[in-house]
Computed example of a mutant assay.
Amino acid sequence: MAVSFIKMHGLGNDFVVLDARTGALPAIDQTLASALAHRHTGIGCDQLIVLEPSGVADLRMRIFNADGTESPACGNATRAVGLLEGRPATIETLAGILRTEPADAGIAVDMGEPQFDWQAIPLAYAMDTLALPVGWEHLDNPVAVNVGNPHAIFFVPDCDRVDLARLGPLIETDPLFPERVNVNVATIESRQAIRLRVWERGTGLTLACGTGACATAIGAMRRGLVDREVRVTLPGGMLTIGWGTDNRITMTGPAVEAFRGTFEPERFRAAEPGNGG
């Protein structure tokens, strides 16, 4: 059975999108998801996105990381799905219902309300999430924010000089974070601008992370480092993040459809997991 897919990306954070609303799909498990994500033997992506009918929204979105684990939310993927819909839409996710609509700069997404309680991150034990009293080498005192996914944000003089490929997996899997964590290193450039790099749990270094941009902006706002609307520049490009007086986060940025194709699921069932990136 040939299965259709759409290859998309948001600032280089790339996805393979499968739409169960337009045709039957095989059962998606960790093995198949990671095999499709593999850069050398699969289609290649940071996340596999599965679209399904929803009883509470216009559609349901499931998100599988490159290692096959399922993730509650993905900001860049939400913009990509918003682009496919081409109109204002509500999207059911494990993190709640997200709303998208076309905007001058691409797709605007209502990412909901940030969570700051230590149990909501979650952390292994109680501590102040505005400045966690912990550190890994020269990275210390991060802000912790949950915006559908858990994030730890370190503010540093120059995020490009941080060896995130080495420190990212150490922090991601630290026992302090029972559900693992996304690791963000950010440099404040002005009251309206942040430069950011992200180690994404279950994926690794990524060109862009929408929830990471949201969490970093909110962390910087909580510390009084930036205004309530800020530009976040990642290796793949720029997002605009706003935190309204209603406590809701709006993320605006581009999304792109790259190409469409088909694959035979049985060819991937025996593939080795991993992204190989």
Rank of each mutant, 00 (worst) to 15 (best):
A144M: 07
V156L: 11
F154C: 06
E179G: 06
L130N: 15
D158Y: 10
R161M: 09
T187K: 10
E137V: 13
L164T: 08
T173P: 02
V183L: 02
P169G: 12
D174M: 08
A186R: 00
E189M: 05
L139R: 07
A165N: 11
Y125I: 07
F177W: 07
P133N: 13
D158E: 04
P157I: 02
D158A: 10
H151M: 06
I153D: 06
V156F: 15
L176T: 04
I153V: 05
A131F: 06
V147A: 03
R180D: 05
L139D: 08
T187Y: 12
I171G: 02
I171W: 05
V185F: 00
M127E: 07
C159M: 12
R161H: 12
D140R: 09
G135A: 15
A152V: 07
A186F: 01
Y125F: 15
V181N: 02
V162R: 08
L130Q: 14
A126G: 06
E179P: 03
A186G: 04
L170H: 13
T129W: 00
P133M: 11
V145F: 00
L139Y: 10
N184E: 11
V162W: 15
P169A: 14
T187D: 01
N146K: 02
A165T: 12
P157A: 03
L132N: 09
N182V: 12
F155H: 03
H138W: 10
I188H: 05
A152E: 06
F177S: 01
N146V: 05
D140N: 10
V183Q: 01
E137C: 13
T173Y: 14
G135E: 06
M127P: 04
V181C: 03
N141E: 10
H138F: 13
C159R: 10
V156H: 12
N141G: 07
L170A: 13
D158F: 11
H138V: 14
E172N: 00
G135T: 09
T187S: 11
L130D: 15
G135R: 07
D140W: 08
